[in-house]
Amino acid sequence: MKIASPTGIGLRQPHYARVLDERPPLGFVEVHSENFFHDGGAALQVLQRARECYPLSLHGVGLALASADGGGDAHVERLAALVDRFEPALVSEHLCWGRIDGRHYNDLLPFPYTSDALALVAGRVSALQDRLKRQVLLENLSTYVQFRDSEMSEADFLAELVCLTGCGLLLDLNNLYVNARNFGGDALEALDRLPMRAVGEIHLAGHAVTEHGLIDTHGSRVCDDVWALLRDVRLRGVGAPALIEWDTDLPDLDLLLAEVAQADRIGGLEQELDHVRAA
């Protein structure tokens, strides 16, 4: 199933009851896959009910695809079981590492964008797609440091990855913005280098402004500059569904729904332009 309707939200525990009772009009709901790696229990039951009301996106945070170490096989199998059971519309992971020498740091960690790393990640992504028998979306990361040994930009790395594996992109516009601000780059230039046709989902979130730069906290409203990036992406013809991602200092559901409405308004922009062109 493809997601045809507009914006979704990250479904988090404090909102379970209201979302399931009131069923607000949402394009889809997204959850962190790992929070449902269970044999049974109440959380899976909630996901079952959510799946009956909305298309589902499974968003992974623990596969650590760029880890030099292997050892993620059990994780892949648990994800495969979840995908089999819930038949999600979208499955995604991050372009990051997190595991080395048997230890997991449980964070989305950056690495140098080299051809060696590209070969490693491409192999992992292909194996993952083969196992899940479906396309997986890879998300661009918010990073706070850059490596001297990087041979290419993250955008070029992702573009190559799409070519090598046929994976899709989860385009996180807040991450793109955070990186551009932190490293003095240009988010629009990054958009130019990314294959827009491969974008299968868009993430929108808020960040924190600190003395050391922007930190991707998912704890506030989407900022005006990121909304502007969404407009730009829509004008580039990207129709992929967007998601409001909010993880810390979770607000009332109504605020999330207001953000959804804003994304929908911008999502309708391209349609409006089509009407104007046709007239």
């Binding site: 790992e34 623990g62 997991h104």
Partner: peptide
Amino acid sequence: CPSRDGDLN
């Protein structure tokens, strides 16, 4: 006893 799993549960 560091974490050994991508699933913090």
